[in-house]
């Protein structure tokens, strides 16, 4: 939590004007889009459109949401380049990937 806050602070200081927000829909037990390419500084928000709860869990536990019920959302600010694979811990066949580049 602390590191996350710190990361957020650092980012706010260096926040470029082009920082953007991108939405991923969770629908019919799928993350859409499944693979998302973003640049460093992008805030990604997952929104659950299903009638069943889902979660967003990075496979190396970099980020992990709680249970997202219908219309609940979870956001993560990607402040480092890299590939982040994630899945739903309730339905592990649901997987997705965020590719973050400079």
């Amino acid at each position: 939590m602390k590191t996350r806050l710190l990361a957020l602070l650092c980012l706010m200081l260096s926040m470029p004007v082009w920082a953007e927000e991108v939405k991923i829909n969770i629908k019919e037990f799928m993350f859409m889009p499944v693979v998302l390419n973003v640049s460093v500084g992008t805030k990604v928000t997952w929104v659950n459109d299903d009638q069943i709860p889902h979660t967003v869990a990075e496979t190396r536990k970099v980020f992990r949401s709680g249970a997202l019920d219908t219309n609940d959302s979870f956001s993560w600010l990607f402040d480092k380049p890299g590939e982040f694979e994630y899945f739903c811990v309730l339905h592990p066949q649901m997987t997705g990937k965020i590719v973050v580049t400079q």
Partner: peptide, 8 residues
């Protein structure tokens, strides 16, 4: 202990 892409 669910793992991505795997069954229970």
């Amino acid at each position: 202990n669910f793992q991505a892409g795997h069954e229970a």
